[in-house]
Design a protein around this nucleic acid. Structure first.
Length: 704
RNA sequence: GGUGAUGUAGCUCAACCGGUUAGAGCGCCACACUCAUAAUGUGGAGGUUGAGGGUUCGAGUCCCUCCAUCACUACCA
């Protein structure tokens, strides 16, 4: 019985170009989708641009255009990269990277708005929406609330200037925007002020949500085992109530959908309407193709026999495995059947980097004339069913594609077709037993089918290439180039070439989900079919061929070098990149390498002082911390929390002299502000041991 | 600091519930072949499975410690 599958890839954010990191997901999903279609299942593969939120709004302002104009332009770029643009959509989705969406929509659509409003209203009816006051940074010049990423200032830890409100690129520490020293708005440069506003929350902490999610995420039905473990961590132990309510509203100005009944004073947070965009795109497709309401409901209401399958990056598991199913469940919609998370892409073993030129855009890859099927194959060869990261090793990419695809696979057709065309006018004929030949193919196809279905593409590719090796070996064994010289042995020649070409057909069917364009060429141009391959074509012996035309060229390593060169850039984005977002895999900033040595100037930045421990006390509820009051002479007294409880009794510390870092940025900790740091030594064998100061030193003296 | 993942030949990866001399492809060396847009075949070299302990008749596989990388996280400051 055919399955009915509604499949999605995460929505790419409409403020940037598609790059090779994104493509892991779209290629992975597309291979799976094409495979399922070949099995005869009904598949709807939908996606959309994720178009709302502050980054889009500000970017449009910076460019002096409306947000609508911006997202329309980006829509054109994204669809071009994915499948050659809207104009190519009707032609079989073999442009761009050949991602075969049935529908590619936008979240800024009436369909999406209707779903968002409906879901919100239903959640509200069920008492799962709370309204609470929240205090946030506000830009008085632009008259807008600022997301964390738009507040910059000095890192509270290392003092680096111009750091974002959530983490420091210099030292890698994370903190709240309120921790920043000298904060300023990245939008206007003004000093932000604290301001309260009412926010709408989805009550994820409600027992109904927790209970549902505990059941939904465990048991291995919906997510991979590793993802299940991660989710378990986030859910905490039963009763622990680790899930925090989710803030789903934003204040204007905001590019997005107004929340119903707020008179336009509140907007849905982009992360609410993004996943809902899957449904919006689906509905748009249904309306476009004249589907009935009953058919639509079969996909959206609980209890149907359809499957909803999401492919995502592991960075957005939280949204897709917690917020999203909980929202759907309590709003009366069906919940996802599967959420499949993949890992990040690294290039040459490292994070993609603009300075190294490994932050490669889809557009540059295509414009430089690299074949998208090369990348599709390489990703397929590397992908498995887990959340593990995959590495694009560029040397390996060249070697692997050339050897597997050209040397092994395409070469089979190239070497056997010539004899058939020249000596037999394209006629294939088989001598002797063909039953075991077809049975062998059947077994291979079945094994590959199971691997595709389980998303074990790497294993599938290995099996396909083993098969290609065997076909080459078998062909060699008959030495057709010798048979061709002996008129008595024409039958043998024709047979071994026919068998090789049947093998080639088998391989082409098995590779069709990965290499759709080549497979189409093989089916139509070589085997003269009037349609594309179906899975069962793997079992049908071909009877004749058209003259062979070369199917795929090798990668020249120079093309890859040119690609790297083309992507090396020093241009900084006009505005800060948005944080992890729908389909926005790995936009993490690179951390600069730490220098092995520091200069004397670096050292001079440290203000080390002799401190007298004026008071030391236990902290209620703290396992490791002691609260110290330090006398630092002329600098006055400082409160410092030190993690030395295990080694020191407060009573013994009083009046001891030790060394502190006096100019360390104050750090808000659970039990108060710590205004410095005392020095202590420790390693595996023991510690911590406080540093002592020889007699004669006075509190406040500088250590250098 | 904690939790989890990863660490296997030069490169990319395999190895079911622990079970014979740890496999494959690429690369490399030699040979063969010439049908194929230098593709193919045969053979070979190459690994103390990150390090060190332990359990076992037997460990890449299980346990402990450590190291490295990555992710998440925190009451290191």
């Amino acid at each position: 019985m055919p399955r009915k599958l509604l499949v999605t890839s995460a929505l790419p954010y409409a403020n940037g170009a598609i790059h090779l990191g994104h493509l892991v997901e779209y290629i992975q999903t597309d291979i799976w989708v094409r495979f399922q279609r070949m099995q005869g299942h009904e598949v709807l593969y939908v996606c959309a641009d994720d178009t709302h939120g502050t980054p889009i709004m500000l970017r449009a302002q910076a460019e002096g255009i409306t947000p609508e104009a911006l997202i329309e332009r980006v829509y054109g770029e994204h669809t071009r990269d994915f499948f050659g643009g809207e104009s190519a959509a009707a032609g079989g989705k073999l442009g761009g990277f050949m991602v075969s969406f049935d529908n590619y929509h936008t979240t800024n659509s009436p369909e999406n708005r209707a779903f968002c409003e409906d879901i919100y209203r239903r959640l509200k009816e069920r008492g799962l929406i709370d309204i609470r006051s929240v205090e946030q940074f506000f830009d008085p010049v632009k008259a807008m609330f600022l997301p964390d990423r738009y507040i910059k200032g000095e890192c509270p830890k290392c003092g680096a200037k111009d750091q974002y409100g959530d983490s420091c690129e210099a030292c890698g520490s994370t903190y709240a925007p309120t921790d920043l020293k000298h904060p300023y708005s990245a939008v206007s440069g003004a000093a932000p002020v604290r301001k309260a506003s009412e926010h709408h929350f989805f009550r994820l902490s409600d027992p109904r949500c927790e209970q549902f999610l505990r059941a939904w995420t465990q048991g291995g039905q919906h997510v991979q085992p590793e993802a299940g473990n991660k989710l378990k961590e986030w859910l905490g132990a039963p009763g622990e109530n680790k899930l925090a309510d989710w803030d789903i509203s934003r204040d204007p100005p905001y590019f997005g959908f107004a929340i119903p009944d707020t008179g336009g004073s509140k907007f849905f947070y982009v992360w609410l309407d993004a996943p809902v965009g899957y449904f919006g795109s689906f509905r748009n497709y249904c309306e476009r193709t004249g589907k009935s309401q009953a058919e639509i409901d079969a996909y959206l209401r609980p209890g149907g026999d359809t499957e909803l399958v999401h492919f995502i990056g592991k960075d957005i598991l939280y949204f897709h495995a917690l917020f999203w199913p909980a929202m759907l469940e309590h709003a009366g919609y069906r919940t996802p059947s599967k959420v499949y998370a993949h890992g990040f892409l690294t290039v040459n073993g490292e994070k993609m980097s603009k300075s190294r030129g490994t932050f490669i855009t889809a557009q540059s890859y295509l414009e430089l004339g690299l074949n998208p099927e090369w990348l599709r194959y390489y990703y397929a060869a590397k992908l498995g069913s887990t959340m593990e990261d995959i590495d694009l090793s560029l040397d390996d990419f060249v070697a692997r594609v050339n050897s597997d695809l050209v040397g092994k696979y395409v070469n089979i057709a190239s070497r056997a077709a010539g004899f058939i065309s020249r000596q037999f006018d394209g006629e294939l004929a088989y001598a002797g037993d063909t039953v075991s030949l077809v049975e062998g193919a059947r077994a291979t196809a079945a094994a590959v089918r199971d691997l595709y279905d389980a998303r074990e593409f790497g294993k599938a590719m290995r099996l396909v290439m083993e098969t290609a090796d065997r076909i080459n070996q078998e062909y060699d064994r008959h030495q057709p180039w010798l048979l061709a010289k002996d008129p008595q042995r024409r039958g043998e020649l024709q047979d071994c070439c026919a068998r090789a070409l049947y093998g080639f057909k088998l391989l082409s069917v098995l590779l069709a989900p990965v290499l759709p364009r080549t497979a189409q060429n093989v089916a139509r141009s070589l085997f003269g079919m009037e349609r594309d391959f179906a899975w069962d074509d793997a079992l049908a012996l071909p009877e004749r061929i058209q003259p062979y035309r070369h199917l795929m060229t090798r990668i020249d390593a120079k093309q890859v070098s040119a690609l790297i060169e083309a992507n090396k850039e020093s241009l900084q984005p006009v505005l800060p990149a948005s944080p992890a977002r729908h389909g926005e895999q790995q936009q993490h900033a690179e951390k600069p390498a730490t220098a092995a040595h520091i200069t004397i100037e670096d050292f001079a930045k440290l203000d080390l002082r002799v401190a007298r421990i004026a008071d030391a006390e236990h902290v209620e509820g703290a396992d490791k911390l002691l609260k110290l009051t330090l006398d630092v002479g002329a600098l006055g007294t400082r409160t410092v929390f030190a993690g030395i409880k295990a080694a020191y009794d407060p009573a013994t510390l009083k009046d001891r002299l030790t060394v502190m870092v006096a100019n360390l940025a104050p750090r808000k900790m659970k039990f108060g502000i710590s205004e410095g740091m005392i020095l202590a030594a420790s390693d595996d064998s023991g510690g911590p041991f406080l540093l002592a100061v020889d007699d004669g030193a006075k509190p406040g003296m500088k250590a250098k």
